[in-house]
């Protein structure tokens, strides 16, 4: 394999990766919940209890900008990163390794 061939392979793989990645959520940083003042937020423990009751297995949870970000396994068995509204505790966005599994309307 000459240098040009390995570079062509690099370009092809990058192209394939980019083509497949076109539907992924590169805009994760843009997720917002418009949750308002923090004194109105429900506690993280309340969210965890709600999620556990729904069948989620939680690995880690913390506030991220104006949302709650939770890492864990969904009731369907997918390992995901999810964003929740801190006041309504509604699910806003669920991502699996960059792929959007759920996005609130």
């Amino acid at each position: 394999m000459k240098a040009s061939l390995s570079l062509r392979l690099a370009a092809a793989l990058m192209g394939a990766g980019l083509a497949c990645a076109s539907g992924t959520a590169l805009a994760h940083g843009n997720v917002t919940c418009n949750a308002g003042p923090k004194e109105n937020w429900k506690s993280l423990d309340t969210l965890k209890a709600k999620m556990t009751a729904e069948g989620w297995k939680i690995t880690k949870a913390h506030p991220n900008k104006d949302c709650y970000e939770v890492y864990g396994i969904t009731p369907e068995g997918d390992k995901v990163e999810s964003f929740w509204h801190p006041v309504t505790l509604e699910k806003r966005l669920v991502l699996r390794r960059g792929q959007v599994l759920y996005k609130a309307p």
Binding site: A10, A11, L13, M14, G17, L18, A21, T24, A25, L26, A27, H28, G29, R97, G98
Partner: peptide, 13 residues
């Protein structure tokens, strides 16, 4: 090439 795509997708940018 693969590393850059892998990194951009998983770190969202």
């Amino acid at each position: 090439a693969l590393t850059l795509v892998h990194w951009a997708i998983l770190m969202y940018g």
